[in-house]
């Protein structure tokens, strides 16, 4: 399992690996929003948590179709299925590698970009906390979508359509944590819901992903 994680991280960091794609997209979205909305600091402050969460979610979505497609094309997936590593574990590791190369940089970049959107000072902590709790769920759910569509040529659009509804609960509760945090309100309820969703998908989703992948590889 360590070998797979190290390989995926190495591949992401080498040329053409796609590391930074999501981060660059997140950067572009949050930098452009103030230009399109106009110079109203109060308005920006209101929409900042939502825009940051939406940007992070779309940035995550952007790199999903590479998650398994490259391994499918060069035959690695076929060979991984015949390897001693359970497919559920292999897919969990791939989702973890995806989070480390996509989700984690977004979490770390979010407070910096929050400045551009005039995020209220108490909101920074809760923005980072909600993203740190929520983005792993995005990677794991995305891994399921990638497994479902990997055998389909140009399955990227289908992948987005299938995954987006599954992202909605995470988006709602994640943005709610950030919004309430920025407004200085109580955050416990949405935070617990967000953590619960993430724990549940991490525990259950790999089994679904492995099942649909086995079907897709037939």
């Amino acid at each position: 399992m360590r070998a797979l994680l190290i390989r995926d991280l190495t591949l992401a960091l080498r040329a053409g690996g796609g590391f930074g794609l999501g981060l660059a997209f997140f950067l572009i979205v949050t930098v452009l929003v103030p230009f399109s909305v106009g110079p109203q600091a109060e308005l920006l402050q209101v929409i900042a948590p939502g825009v940051l969460w939406l940007g992070a979610l779309l940035a995550c979505l952007l790199s999903l179709d590479r998650l398994l497609a490259l391994d499918f094309e060069d035959g690695t997936l076929d060979l991984l299925v015949t390897a001693p590593l359970p497919l559920e574990a292999a897919l969990s590791v791939k989702a973890l590698a995806h989070w480390l190369t996509t989700g984690l940089p977004l979490v770390l970049a979010a407070p910096v970009l929050g400045v551009l959107l005039n995020l209220a000072p108490p909101g920074y902590l809760w923005l980072v906390a909600s993203l740190a709790l929520g983005t792993p769920a995005l990677s794991v759910i995305g891994c399921f979508g990638a497994a479902l569509t990997v055998a389909i040529k140009r399955g990227g659009l289908l992948l987005s359509l299938l995954v987006l509804p599954l992202y909605v609960p995470t988006l709602i509760f994640g943005a709610e944590v950030a919004r309430r945090g920025a407004g200085g309100q109580e955050v416990t309820t949405p935070l617990l819901m967000l953590a619960g969703i993430t724990c549940a998908v991490i525990a259950l989703m790999p089994f679904a992903s492995a099942a649909v992948l086995r079907m897709g590889l037939r």
């Binding site: 360590r2 070998a3 797979l4 390989r7 190495t10 591949l11 080498r14 040329a15 053409g16 690996g17 391994d71 094309e73 060069d74 035959g75 690695t76 076929d78 060979l79 991984l80 390897a83 001693p84 590593l85």
Partner: peptide, 22 residues
């Protein structure tokens, strides 16, 4: 099979070591 499961951006040693460790 026809596809060898090799990664273009990894060296020969890295490719083999990965499969050995798996």
């Amino acid at each position: 099979a026809h596809a060898d499961g090799l990664k273009a951006m990894l060296s020969v040693t890295e490719n083999l070591t990965f499969w050995a460790r798996v």
